[in-house]
């Protein structure tokens, strides 16, 4: 338990560093991936029962402080998205790759969309269509790609030590 929390914390630091070092430099046409969001959501899906609220909140707050948007917005959305994704996965998991991917994608799109809407509410000079076409959609796709890479890695790292179950054995909840 403590070991996995330590791993999650280290992963959060790495995600934050990737966000400030790599994300601005791999931007394509202004769209960049959100490593922090991808990490928060993948952890919520990989460890739905242990994914707490502290890491998403702190990671979101750190991202807020590094950016120029409203402080607290990403902290709010990360916390909410992490909670929602973990609960959705606990209910909907059907032991296929589709469900985590669907939950991850939906949560990413919702977070990006909500963040964009919040910025527009606070005075961002852009139309909803522009915001969706030029930021929400490309950033979400970029983040989903990052999530696809992160998911197997974190599956391996965070599920080490957990009892593995054989194929075909149902999950009892």
């Amino acid at each position: 338990m403590e070991r996995s929390i330590g791993r999650i914390a280290i992963g959060a630091v790495v995600a934050f560093l990737l966000q400030i070092v790599a994300a601005p430099n791999i931007a394509v046409a202004g769209a960049q991936p959100n490593f922090a969001l991808a990490y928060v959501l993948v952890v919520a899906i990989v460890r739905p029962d242990e994914a707490g609220n502290v890491m998403p909140f702190l990671l979101g707050l750190a991202c807020d402080l590094m950016g120029t948007g409203p402080v607290g917005a990403e902290a709010f959305l990360f916390t909410l998205a992490s909670f929602g994704a973990s609960r959705a996965f606990m209910v909907l998991d059907n032991d296929t790759l589709f469900m985590p991917l669907a939950i991850f994608s939906a949560a990413t799109l919702l977070v990006e969309l909500s963040y964009g809407c919040l910025l527009m509410l606070l005075g961002l000079q852009a139309s909803f269509a522009d915001a969706f076409m030029y930021r929400v959609l490309p950033c979400s796709l970029f983040t989903i790609v990052v999530g696809l890479v992160l998911y197997p890695i974190l599956m391996r790292l965070l599920r080490v030590g957990q009892m593995t179950r054989g194929a075909g054995i149902p999950v009892i909840r």
């Binding site: 609220n53 409203p70 607290g72 917005a73």
Partner: peptide
């Protein structure tokens, strides 16, 4: 608590 704190921060910031 975290959601409330986040919202308060957003309001203060704006």
């Amino acid at each position: 608590l975290f959601l409330a704190v986040s919202l308060i921060l957003v309001i203060i910031y704006t």
